[in-house]
Design a protein around this nucleic acid. Structure first.
Length: 287
DNA sequence: CAAGGCTCCTGATAGC
DNA sequence: TGCTATCAGGAGCCTT
């Protein structure tokens, strides 16, 4: 599942292969892929045609392509299985190809949005007034992510402790901190020896800071590994956690020994998904 | 208003 | 072998 590190790898690929190019034509092949574009696929295609793509940006799991001089950006989210691929023109269509963007140059490549489960999509939005990086207005509520130099650590700690919730829910709350999904949440909690149901209100400032540090560490580690493979036309997205899955300590390791203490890792149903944790290192809070 | 639950989707896999 | 049930989960939207 693409979380912040995977999306950043995609952003870098787009920066290299798509920035500066002029859109010649757009094909929307599945309506769900543009469902966040209220005016529909035809409108999306028409408005994008002729635009020049500026430097791709990212916040959390969202990425966007500002359009030069238009006050609008193409917003993208990969959902669970979305891919943005730069493919040679004429290459066979992928089974789940949803949107194709052709360019008005001789580079011989096109941009494709491919998405099996259709949780992701592209859409076109006005940018927030005064935003230097073309932030789309519809994601103004998304918090800065922990790798953003402007991430405000102090207000994050304050907001976290003001929540009447539990720590993993807070990690996944994109209005509090963005870019963290189920995988990296479990990894950061394991590294911090924190149980996913620990109340946020009782979290000491030092523990909150430690957790944030581990979020950053695990994301940077994943990014360094994922960043090795996009040296081609493929804007590396495989919809999985890339090469980092072999480095995971908790996620997906049910019944395998904890790398710290050897206790079998457990999986618990949680919020229509799963939480993986070490029952010894990450003690449950008292009920 | 905040917190938590529901729902969208398709393919891989397990179980019978 | 072939069917059905389960699981993967981000985030908008709805209910409490």
């Amino acid at each position: 599942m693409p979380e912040l590190p995977e999306v950043e790898v995609v952003r870098r690929g787009l920066e290299r292969w798509v920035a500066g190019r002029t859109v010649a034509a757009v094909e929307v092949l599945h309506p769900r892929a543009v469902r966040r574009h209220p005016a529909g696929g035809a409108d999306f295609a028409a408005r994008l045609t002729g635009a020049v793509i500026a430097a791709p940006m990212r916040r959390g799991k969202y990425l966007w392509l500002p359009l030069e001089g238009r006050g609008q950006s193409v917003l993208g989210h990969l959902g669970m299985s979305g891919q943005l691929l730069v493919q040679p023109e004429g290459a066979a269509d992928e089974k789940h190809l949803r949107i194709r963007v052709r360019f008005a140059d001789e580079a011989g490549t096109e941009l494709r949005f491919v998405d099996q489960r259709t949780f992701g999509g592209l859409s076109l939005h006005d940018t927030v007034e005064g935003s230097a990086d073309g932030l789309p207005d519809v994601i103004a509520h998304i918090a800065r992510d922990p790798l953003d130099p402007l991430f405000d650590e102090e207000s994050y700690h304050r907001a976290l402790r003001a929540k009447r919730s539990t720590v993993k829910r807070a990690l996944l709350d994109q209005s509090l901190i963005s870019g963290v999904g189920n995988i990296y949440a479990d990894e950061a909690l394991w590294r911090s020896r924190l149980h996913y149901e620990r109340p946020t209100a009782g979290l000491a400032r030092a523990r909150s800071a430690e957790l944030l540090g581990h979020v950053r560490e695990v994301m940077e580690a994943a990014l360094s590994v994922g960043g090795t493979s996009f040296d081609s036309l493929y804007v590396n997205v495989n919809g999985e956690s890339g090469y980092f899955d072999r480095s995971l300590d908790a996620y997906g390791r049910e019944d395998e020994p904890c790398r710290r203490c050897g206790t079998p890792i457990r999986r618990r149903p949680w919020m229509n998904r799963s939480s993986y944790f070490c029952p010894l290192c990450q003690r449950a809070p008292r009920a």
